[in-house]
Structure formats: structure tokens, C-alpha cells
Design a protein around this nucleic acid. Structure first.
Lengths: 187, 187
DNA sequence: ACCTGAACACCGTTCAAGT
DNA sequence: ACCTGAACACCGTTCAAGT
């Protein structure tokens, strides 16, 4: 069970950031959850910016690994594409959290550059995966795939945010369904 | 030029909240921008929650008034619908800000209930307007209009957030264009 | 009515110093 | 290597006092 302190800090900070964002990520509460003192976090991460950047980096790495597995293990690219909205549903299932990167995108003005880079990489990873999966599934032509991938990503990001504002997962499901019936997502 | 202090506080707080959210709204900086002292704000608003609720209320009231005018003054409901994405573009044009209600939706866990109510009313106002305009424009049947209105709203919210994360208005325009070509928005 | 200085309790951040 | 006490800066809020 017990991971090393650094891993526990990363895992806990991720959950905090998904619920309270960068500004809401505070070292005293975080340290208490991990079972150390706030100052001890600075042994592992030289600053809040470094911690947040490490959290966001781990976040997109995990996402990239999951998406690769999803595409590999699905019956077809179209099937993988149909599963994609679930990855954003999990955060909502987890106490109405949202994507760490959506939260930090909102807080763009207050997030250090080193964190922004990792946040943007999360979006890049997702859009690239959508793009190649869309092409493989013949949902769009290679020419249209980039724009389509971006539209799907931003649509899902919006649906997750709107669902959070009502603490209502059914609302998320309904929005995804609407995206399917209007043609943004494949049926 | 010079409004009364209460109005100046409201107007300034709106801009701060669109850039830094509820957590980033602090009385000392706000007061400095208005040209008074932090303690003076309490003469007009008994607490931060009251100020934020007043700001959010004014925000949806202004939005409702604008949308009513847009529908009234447009050549057709379809034309009004085509103009709708511009209302979310303005925030981005204004130093990469976003909708106050999107920001506070992200901060759901940390926003007082009185503020949440006003934030939700903004979404309600927008969705209701979209719904009736969609019906009038025959973009969707009355039966489908509610789901379609919600999908359009969340799609645009997501596009605005994604564009902010790159400080790139052209990205917003591209996403809206994709929503049109995939069928979420009318062409 | 309208505004402020000064203070309070609290909290996030930092770093020199401990083991 | 790993951790912390203590100081610092800042914030929301209060209130007696000023005009």
C-alpha cells in the first residue's frame, strides 16, 4: 500500500488540483493528507510550480498510456472512439472532479509557464490520439481529421465542465448523446 | 465617465473574476483598481460571497438583455443563432478572458451556494435563449431543442476554454467552424 | 452616507537548521 | 537523505473613528 512520499504527494496533489485547481492546491492540507509537514514537500519539489508541473506531466503520461492501450485492446478504432468520452466521465464519477488540464486552462493567467507546457501537452496527446483514431475509423478524412479531433476534444471538455456546474453526471451523458446525434461524435 | 463606487466595484470585479476566478478575486487588489480601500468595499457588499453573487447576477442579467436584443434586431432567428458564438468570443478578445460562469463552474467546490445559483442562472438563460431561437429557426424540433441547446452551449463553453489555454482566438474560430461543419451548429 | 487605518485570525510559502 | 520550526507575506474581515 504505502508508496514513497514523492509518489503519495503526486497522487494526492492530482486529486486536489482536479477539485480546486492550481490556486486551491495548498501545501498544508496536501501535507496533512500525505502525513508529513508542509515544509517537507519542498524536499521533493522545489516550488509549487515544480510540483504542479510534475503532476500535470504525470497526468498526460498516464492518459497517453491509457489511450494507447484502449486503441490496442479495442475491437476496432471506431469502438475505441466510442469509449473515449468515458475517460472524461471518470473524473466526474470521482466526487465531481474535472480534468486537471481544464481547470488549469481556466486559471491560465495564474499558472506558471512550466505548468502550462504540461497542461498543453495533455491536450496535444488527446487530440493526436483522436486524430489518428478518427482516421483509422474512417470517421473523417486525413484532411479533416485535425479539425474534427479538436472539435471533439473541446466539446467533451465543455460537457464535463457544464456537468460539474450542476454536479450531475446524467447531464454529461446527455450532452455526449447529443454530440452523437448531431454528428460531432460518431453514432 | 465616473460611475458610482458600487458600479465600479461590480464592473472591476467582473473583469477580475473572468481572468482569475472566485479564488483570485481579492479585496485589496480590487479596491486598488477602483481607487478605494479594501475595507470600503464592505460598505457596499457585506462579504465576498455577496459581492460575487451580485457580480454573477449582473452578468446574467446583461447577457439576457443582450440576447433579447440580438434576437429582436436580427434579420431572422437563424441569423441570431449565427451571431451567438460571437458573444463568447468577446471575452477572449478582452485579454484572453473567459465566461465568468465557466470559471466559477470549474471552481464549483469553492464557490458559495449563493454564487452558484447566479452562475447556474447564466447557463439557464443562455440555454433557454438557444432553445427558443433554435425552434424559431427550425434548426431542431421543439422536442429536440432542449438537448440541442445544451449541446451547443457546452460546445461553445469548451471551445472558449480550449482557446484560452493557448491564448489563441483563431483556435476558437476554428472550433466554431468545426461545430458548423459537423452539424452541432447550423451552417 | 461614505470612507479608512489599524488590527485580528488565519493560511500559503519559504528557508535555515535539525536529525 | 529526509524532515521541520518559525518567520514572512498575504487575505478576508471587523470596527472605531474620520469626513
Amino acid at each position: 500500500m504505502s508508496l514513497n512520499a514523492r509518489e503519495e504527494i503526486l497522487a494526492t496533489a492530482k486529486l486536489v488540483a482536479q477539485a480546486h485547481g492550481y490556486a486551491g492546491l495548498n501545501f498544508r492540507d496536501l501535507a496533512e493528507q500525505v502525513g508529513i509537514k508542509a515544509a517537507s514537500i519542498y524536499y521533493y519539489f522545489p516550488s509549487k510550480a515544480d510540483l504542479a508541473a510534475a503532476v500535470a506531466k504525470r497526468y498526460w503520461e498516464d492518459s497517453a498510456a491509457y489511450l494507447d492501450g484502449l486503441l490496442r485492446d479495442s475491437a476496432s478504432p471506431l469502438d475505441a472512439l466510442r469509449q473515449y468520452p468515458k475517460t472524461f466521465r471518470w473524473a466526474l464519477e470521482n466526487d465531481n472532479r474535472i480534468c486537471l488540464c481544464s481547470f488549469m486552462s481556466a486559471q491560465f493567467d495564474d499558472v506558471p509557464e512550466a505548468v502550462r507546457v504540461e497542461v498543453q501537452t495533455f491536450a496535444d496527446v488527446n487530440i493526436e490520439w483522436l486524430k489518428k483514431t478518427i482516421i483509422a475509423a474512417k470517421v473523417a478524412t486525413p484532411r479533416q481529421a485535425d479539425k474534427r479531433a479538436r472539435a471533439i476534444y473541446s466539446g467533451i471538455v465543455g460537457a464535463q465542465l457544464v456537468a460539474r456546474s450542476r454536479n450531475d453526471i446524467a447531464l454529461y451523458d446527455g450532452l455526449i448523446e447529443s454530440y452523437r446525434s448531431t454528428g460531432l461524435l460518431p453514432a
